[in-house]
Design a protein around this nucleic acid. Structure first.
Length: 478
RNA sequence: CGGGGCGUAGCGCAGUCUGGCUUAGCGCGCAUGGUUCGGGUCCAUGAGGUCGGAGGUUCGAAUCCUCUCGCCCCGACCA
């Protein structure tokens, strides 16, 4: 058992912070609510970034960059957007030693400035669609920050698209939701429910908001990615207009979608254990670590190390990239070296010691299950490939089983309250209430509607009693 | 912003009530040497502090008083 990590069931929040610290992923910055993402954490972000970026490019998007500072007045152009964001804006009021005539907001999201630019760029139906993404940092002055989950500044991508028709924009919104779902499930091994948000949980300025909703290992919910159909709200606010084939001036239909470094928080809370971080092989910057082990440092360095390097090179070639690492910290005892890699979440450890050399084997140890396996040297490469695939699948299945076991149905409001209070987790119930009802539910139970279950699931609303209410997931959320 | 707590070595803390017995300690970590070595060895030696800051009381302040800065937790808030 790791001695530097508080057990989950003792204090979940502390466990989460301890895992981050033990893995060396992040540290607090001198500015309140801000964090430094350290190399181990940043490598995971780069790995996640690459998966998404490749998928965006495949679906026809291109990257661009818009400025960090946005004129304050831009936030006043879309009524709901103002209301949603002004409380958490950070402003630049002085520059060059003088007070600015108009303060600049540090972007909390870029719909406004991108809308402004799109209105200049888009003239004709021939200019559409515009499919642009940007990777950047944003700032939202949150009252209660939490590493990776809610920091004042965070890294993310925001896609912003403009289309000629509502149908096309809606299709784009759902397509990107699907891309998110695919990557979060198949690469991050986090099962999600990809559904629409209720009115009260909608993005300020959107007509429809969709989410990938995940369950953490304490059964609370986390929004892991969102995609918004913005209708013509921003097009009208920023006059994003084009001439159609008939020569008529039309407003565009826009969408926006984003995932952030919050996904790293999700990764930690879904998969990790009391020994520390666990990263799925598809995301792990280092998929396997090879440890030459010997009582005699010179034997380790001169006799075993070359074999370890050879094995590493072969594996990298077979796995298609630099994905293994050889541990040369011979001055450390094996136990210390094991823990270092364990806590960094490296999926697989290959031990190459004198005993293994004599037996002609390599010992493989899985991070996810702790299972140990002695494999004949000639079978190491195919076995590693199989085990990595198995770890990936196992992590997803394990998370999905956990989520399903902690999902319950409620027929009435009383039942919903009771489940939230006693069992927690996701509660499915038919709901057709107003945003005011959502507030009441939150005040009564602490839970909020996370999303509407996709598909046609209709029934009688537990709150209003009306028919054709949609099956909705309620949970306490981060 | 309301309620509570805390600032002493890189981290976690004791000492503060009852000022002097501390040259400000302890654990972890770190450095060096030895020992050990397949899931966090053991031992020795050592480096590391303007006790958050300013002012005051006193022969004497980490300790008492005043002011001030910051952080954490709970609540409110959080597309």
């Amino acid at each position: 058992m790791a001695r530097n990590i508080t057990p989950k069931d003792e204090n979940y929040s502390q466990w989460y912070l301890d895992v981050i610290k033990a893995a060396g992923m992040a540290d607090y910055a001198p500015v309140r609510g801000c964090m430094v993402i350290r190399p181990t954490g940043y490598a995971i972000w780069e790995s996640i970034q690459k998966k998404f970026d490749d998928a965006f490019k495949k679906t026809g998007h291109v990257n661009a960059y818009f400025p960090l500072l946005i004129p304050d007045s831009f936030f006043k152009k879309e009524a709901e957007h103002v209301e949603g964001f002004s409380p958490e804006l950070a402003m630049v009021t002085h520059a060059g030693g003088e007070e600015l005539e108009e303060p600049f907001a540090i972007r909390p999201t870029s719909e406004t400035v991108i809308g402004y630019m799109y209105s200049k760029w888009i003239q004709s139906w021939r200019d559409l669609p515009v499919l642009i993404n940007q990777w950047c940092n944003v700032m939202r002055w949150e009252k209660r920050p939490r590493l990776f989950l809610r920091t004042s500044e965070f890294l993310w991508q925001e896609g912003h698209t403009a289309h000629a028709t509502a149908e096309e924009a809606q299709e784009e919104t759902l397509k990107m939701l699907g891309v998110y779902r695919d990557i979060i499930e198949n690469e991050l091994a986090i099962p999600v429910i990809a559904g629409e948000k209720t009115e009260g949980e909608r993005f300020p300025g959107a007509d429809h908001t969709y989410t990938c909703e995940a369950m953490m290992s304490d059964t609370r919910a986390l929004q892991a990615g969102t995609s918004h159909f913005l209708g013509q709200n921003f097009a009208k606010a920023f006059e994003i207009q084009y001439q159609d084939k008939e020569g008529n001036l039309q407003y565009c239909w826009t969408s926006s979608w984003g995932v952030s470094t919050r996904l790293i928080g999700a990764l930690i809370m879904v998969h990790s254990d009391n020994d520390g971080l666990i990263v799925p092989p598809n995301i792990a910057p280092v998929k396997a670590v090879i440890l030459p082990i010997s009582k005699d440092e010179s034997v380790a360095a001169n006799e075993i190390l070359p074999k370890a390097k050879e094995l590493s090179a072969k594996l990298d070639e077979e796995l298609g990239g630099m994905f293994t690492k050889v541990d040369t910290d011979f001055h450390m005892r094996p136990g210390d070296r094991f823990f270092t890699h364990l806590q960094q979440g490296i999926p697989l450890r290959l031990e190459l010691g004198e005993k293994d050399l004599q037996a002609g084997t390599v010992r493989l140890v899985r991070r996810d299950t702790g299972e140990k396996l002695d494999v004949k040297a000639e079978n190491v490469i195919p076995t590693v490939k199989n085990i990595l695939a198995d770890i990936q699948a196992n992590m997803f299945t394990r998370a999905k089983t956990f989520r399903d076991e902690n999902t319950h149905d409620a027929q009435s409001y009383d039942e919903l309250k009771e489940i939230i209070e006693t069992k927690g987790g996701f509660v499915r119930a038919y709901f057709a209430g107003t945003p005011e009802d959502e507030v009441k539910i939150r005040e009564d139970t602490g839970a909020t509607p996370r999303c509407i279950v996709p598909g046609e699931h209709l029934g009688k609303c537990f709150m209003t009693g009306q028919d054709n209410a949609k099956l909705t997931i309620f949970a306490k959320a981060y």
